[in-house]
Structure formats: C-alpha cells, structure tokens
Design a protein around this nucleic acid. Structure first.
Length: 488
RNA sequence: GGGAGUGUAGCUCAGAAGGUAGAGCAACGCACUUUUAAUGCGUAGGUCCUGGGUUCGAAUCCCAGCACUCUCACCA
C-alpha cells in the first residue's frame, strides 16, 4: 500500500461504476439469488448438440475479455470456473450493465447453455439473466501470477483464496480430511466430545500456556495445552471410546511446523494399548489418503513419502544407535556425542541429554512414516511402563518427513504411580506452573480401564497430505504480528 | 536473540559497473460478435520501505531503523 492516493484513484473509478449501477435502479450489493448450480456440475451435465439446455450460476469474475459487442467472462465459484458469454445481440436493456462489469465483481448469470466454436461450455446470458450481486472496489491481484506477497496472502486470506485457486483447494482438502476422521471414528463407535479450553491447571503436556482471566470469579485460567486429562476422566466415567478434534494453545515460538494455536485430534479407547493405536493411526491416515484420491506415494517438497502399510516400527533405543552410534545405556558416550553436536548438556539430567541427542540425530532423518516406540519412561509421565522392561514406557511417536505427526501411549491408570510421576514432574518447575491436578489422581482412584490413547496433529497431517511445507499454508488465519497503524 | 535474503507502479517483476526508472498484467480511451492470460493502437499511473551519510549527482555505495521471508537457537 505504497501510496494511499493511488489506491484511491482505482477505488474511485470502481466507485463511479457502482454509482452508475445504482443509477440503473439496481442494488450493487445484490440480494438472495436462488437455484444456483455449481459451475462444475453445469459443465459435467452439458450434452453436446442439445440446444434446449439452460444454466444459472453465480460467482466472482476472475477474467474478462471484452470484444466490443461481445464479452466473455470467466466466472469462478467454489467448484471451479465456467465461461459466461454476454452479447449485445442477446441483451438489450442489460447491455449497459454488462459493459460496467469489472474483474472481481460477483454476478449471477442465467441463460442458454452452449458451446463456443472453440469448444468452451458457456452460459449465454439472456435479457434479464444478468444479476449484479456484489461490487469489488479494489484492484484484484495480477491474473496470471496471482497474489505472491507472502505476508499479504496470510493477512488478506480472503483475497488469497480466490486469487490462488490452489489455496481454496487445499482448505477443501483439509475439510475432507477432518470429515474422513470423524466418519472413521464414528464407524468404530467413538463418541465426539468437547472438553474445556479454559483450564485452571494446564495439564496433559509440558508447554508454556497462555493465561487469561475470568472476572466474575476473579480466577486466572489457562488456555489448554492438551485435552488429555479431561478425556481420560471420561474413560473413568464409562465413555469407553471418545475423541475430540479441537484447538490446543502453546505459548511458544513460531516456525514452519508450529503455530501457537493448532488443531489436535485425541482419542482414547478402553481395553486397548499403544499397539492398537498404531493400527488405528495407519487406518486413519490411509482412509484420508483414499478420500483425497492419492496413491500411497505422496510427494512432499523434494521427498516422496511412501504410506504403504505396514509402516516401520522401530525402538527408540535402536534408532538412537542407528543414527547417533550411541548405546542408550552408555551415558558417557551420549554426553560426548551431545558435546560434538554442540548441545550444552551441563545441568541436564541423563534422560534429557539422551532425548536431545535423539532429537538432533534421529528425528529429521525419519522421512517415511516411522513409529518410534518404547520411549524412556522418565520422559512419559502419563504413559504406562513396559511390563517386560520398566525403564521404557509404552509410547510411540509417529514421524513423517522429520515431523512429529502423532503421539500415543498405553495410558497409565495406576493412581499411585501417576501421583509419583506428577510429583517428579513438578520438581524444579516454574512456581506459577507448580500445580498438581489432584482431581485427576482422584479420578484414577475410582478406576480407569486400561486404555490406549492417541493424538494426531491435524495441521501437520494436512501438510503432509497436501504437500504444504509450512503450517501457515494449512491454517486459514495463522498468527501474525498485527500491522502497525502507520504501515497500514 | 544470531545469521542470510528481500523491500521499485494496484499486482507480478526487470533495472552490470552511481547519471534521476521500465515491462507485462490491471486501469482509462478507441477499434473489434466466438474470446481462453483475447488482440491492436493510444493515455495515465512512482516518497524506488524510512531516516541519516558519502558524492557534483544515490533505486544503486555506507550506517541506522522498520517490515517480511528463510534459517539457526529457544521449545516434554
């Protein structure tokens, strides 16, 4: 927006056309417009040679070719585009209105459906069939290159969506992915629930929360960092299969893989364990791939991801050995490796150093979907320990293109162990966060069925399945710094 | 917070070495009844991010700032 005066120049030209439309006795912002047929359906049902066909569509003018006494318009709606033809010969009273149309305007078009001699299916508007529905007062972005300014694309997503069709397509796919997950879980008997977004204790994960305040109760509350502890209370209550798809909020940095608010699907299934969760994860992702009509091999940037089942299941310790060369029990070697990797391990507990080395040497190497299983138990205060080797917890994280996509446990349901884990977790933490969810321990004391739990990051799943390399491309309105008033 | 890059017309972008700014699209005008990013001719449109500095002269070189992008760090 370099010069406001110039913006005004273009806007005033369009404002003038708006006035002319008003002068014709028309409302430049339209009204209810019914019996609209999506562009894609119109094109699909067209029969060659049938002269009696008619059509009625509405959408935004994205291209306009004025040949004098003939105007061709490319109209875009949510399903695609269709050509609209306006001819002086067919229109009498409405021809002046046709000549006022600008790229960006929203119109309805009704008339004969036919083909031009170049083979384009076209709605030939008849007198009275042109309906002005909304004026666009701004210059649209360049018609061929679209909107490229990254900042403006996110700030003005409403322009991005119609200037760059692949953006709309990606968000439609996101909707289909979420719908597929709901359908899949519904078919398995899972019940969808909603648990608190505002929590007095931000539990279920270890991330910095956002703080808010309830005035009437004079109560500080946290935006949730995880729904986990509430969903597991529902297991206690007898909801044996529950899930929630909703936002989590974490007050941490932004990156191409992180947005402060992100969408998580969490599910809990009584009498299952983390191995069942691995199967469900594969089934959910495979169902989404099928919905989107993808093959098992999905292109992502330079990489190709092979989702053919079964996916690799590898132990944490084995992967650590494979990629860092360190034996997980050889803490001296791991600390030496950490220093080589420029990790400052001073003051870090052994398991934390191990995990640091794991994260820097292993995670980004996991391109094909890989279940990393059996984490050091100390890192997993909400997971049940392995019966065969209690140093490890029955937990997996799923990695794809180096990105954590899912996290699952065999859920810890022993209240005494849970209490101990909470105590240990709180040690040395920030004063403001040192609150234990004792009610959760109480819930466990009533008896929680053994269960498996799974969380899938929806944004990242959409990234992987739509080839988006930054999370901002799968969130309609990602967090941005507000524009300073003087830069507006 | 560190590093790198970008910032030029409404949009997409050119502007080697310092000489006062260009194209395509969009807009406006004219022509055109079968176009497909329509075409042809013409017109108009700029605080070259901001502020300093060097210079006879800065979009260009230097310094500082701002915004954005990428990247590293932080991040159970």
């Amino acid at each position: 927006m370099a010069n406001p005066a110039d913006t005004d120049r273009f806007e005033q030209q369009r404002q003038e056309k708006l006035s002319q439309i008003e002068a014709m006795g028309l409302d430049p912002y339209g009204a209810r417009y019914e019996d609209v047929e999506p562009a894609a359906l119109v094109k699909a049902r067209y029969q060659d040679g049938d002269e009696s066909q008619r059509a009625r569509s509405a959408g935004r003018i994205v291209l306009l070719r004025d040949i004098g006494k003939l105007i061709f318009i490319t109209l875009r709606d949510r399903t695609g585009t269709i050509q609209v033809g306006l001819s002086k010969g067919m229109l009498t009273d409405q021809w002046p209105l046709a000549k006022l149309l600008d790229i960006g305007d929203i119109i309805g078009a009704a008339g004969k459906l036919g083909k031009t001699k170049t083979g384009e299916i076209t709605i030939w508007v008849e007198e009275g069939g042109l309906t002005f529905l909304s004026k666009c007062l701004f210059q649209p972005p360049e018609k061929f290159h679209g909107l490229a300014d990254v900042d403006q694309r996110y700030r003005q997503r409403y322009v991005d969506l119609w200037a760059n069709p692949e953006v709309l397509d990606r968000f439609q796919k996101r909707s289909e992915i979420v719908a597929t997950i709901r359908r899949f879980l519904g078919s398995k008997g899972f019940v969808e629930v909603e648990t608190p977004m505002m929590q007095a204790i931000a539990g279920g994960a270890a991330a910095k929360p956002f703080i808010t305040h309830h005035n009437a109760l004079d109560l500080d509350l946290y935006l949730r960092i995880s729904p986990e502890l509430f969903l597991k209370r529902l297991l206690v209550g007898g909801m044996e299969r529950v899930f929630e798809i909703n936002r989590n909020f974490r007050n941490e940095g932004l990156s191409r893989h992180h947005n402060p608010e992100f969408t998580m699907m969490e599910l809990y299934q009584a009498y299952a364990d983390y191995r069942v969760m691995m199967d469900i994860t594969e089934e959910i992702v495979s169902a989404c791939i099928e919905t989107l009509g993808l093959s098992a091999k999905v292109q992502f940037g330079e990489a190709e991801i092979d989702f053919a089942r079964p996916w690799r299941r590898a132990k944490y310790a084995d992967l650590l050995k494979e990629y860092s060369g360190c034996n997980i029990d050889d803490i001296a070697a791991i600390r030496a490796k950490a220093r080589v990797l420029q990790i400052d391990d001073a003051g870090m507990d052994d398991p934390v150093v191990v995990n640091e080395v794991f994260e820097t040497t292993v995670e980004h190497k996991l391109i094909a979907p890989t279940f990393v299983i059996d984490y050091p138990a100390i890192l997993c205060p909400l997971a049940k320990r392995s019966r065969t080797d209690p140093k490890y917890a029955e937990r997996f994280e799923l990695f794809v293109v180096g990105m954590e996509l899912a996290n699952a446990y065999t859920e810890l349901n022993d209240p005494a162990v849970q209490y101990e884990n909470f105590l240990h977790q709180l040690r040395g933490q920030d004063e403001s966060l040192t609150k234990m969810d004792t009610d959760y321990v109480t819930a466990l004391k009533y008896g929680m069925p053994p269960a498996g739990g799974l969380g899938i990051g929806i944004d990242r799943l959409v990234m992987v399945l739509t080839g988006a390399t930054t999370i901002r491309d799968v969130i309609l309105f990602p967090l941005l710094k507000p524009v300073a008033p003087e830069n507006k």
